[in-house]
Simulated assay, not measured.
Amino acid sequence: MSLPPPVLLPPALRDPALLLRRVRRDWGGEAPLWVFGYASLIWRPEFDAVEQRPATVHGWHRALEMVSRVNRGTPERPGLVFALVSGGSCRGIVYRLDPARAEQELERLWLREMPTGVYDPRWLPCRTPQGHVAALGFTLSRASPNYTGKLGDEALLAILRDAAGRYGRTLDYVLETADGLARCGIRDREIERLVRLARAHGLAPGGHGR
């Protein structure tokens, strides 16, 4: 499929249902539906894929620079989650959804990733060993109020130490992502540095194999 333009809307118009309709329209319902996973979708995809491949996206990188006030933090003690932010490149996994269930799986994915419409859904050109595919990815604008920018180590350590939400601690989320990437043979030097930082300050066990 050709790559349609990204869905970029101001915060007041970020209706998740509207965004889903636009993605469905761009997909068309007949082409293979691919999804790009770069963090929790690697270690907890929650959908059945009929195919998966290692993939690289250029122009975007994985960054722990998105505020989480529900899943990995609270309004009083916000946590962080990974997002795709412009610049650089990112290695991850692309998943091809079962054509018989693609519509239902897309709806489930939307409930998970887009309950508040915070991301900019985008069809990403992904390079795989078997060729290029266009995959749905969830990117974050640097203009978003949920974008933190690069935080210093003291701020990161405070969040890793204290932030927890509906799905657990930010620290566990980072460690799970590190494990998931390692199992797939994907190196991410910044995540590896974060794990070392957490260990050095007694936040993560040294014998975990992370």
Rank of each mutant, 00 (worst) to 15 (best):
V7Q: 01
P10N: 06
P10D: 07
P10S: 02
P16I: 07
R22G: 01
R22N: 07
R22S: 12
D26T: 12
D26V: 11
W27V: 07
G28N: 11
P32D: 09
L33F: 13
G37N: 04
G37E: 02
R44Y: 00
P45L: 10
P45V: 08
Q52G: 00
P54S: 09
T56A: 08
T56V: 13
W60L: 07
M66L: 11
S68Q: 11
V70F: 13
N71K: 14
R72S: 07
R72F: 08
T74V: 06
P75I: 10
E76S: 14
L80I: 09
L84Q: 07
G88A: 12
S89N: 12
G92P: 02
R96Y: 01
E107I: 00
W110K: 03
L111P: 00
R112F: 02
M114V: 06
R127K: 12
S144R: 06
P145C: 09
N146W: 12
N146Q: 15
G152Q: 10
D153P: 08
E154G: 09
L156V: 10
L157C: 04
L157I: 04
I159F: 10
R161G: 02
R161L: 02
A163P: 08
G168I: 03
L171T: 09
D179E: 15
D179W: 15
L181S: 06
L181C: 06
R183Q: 14
R183E: 13
G185H: 06
E190C: 01
A200K: 08
A200T: 09
H201E: 14
H201T: 10
G202P: 00
P205N: 11
G206P: 08
G207L: 14
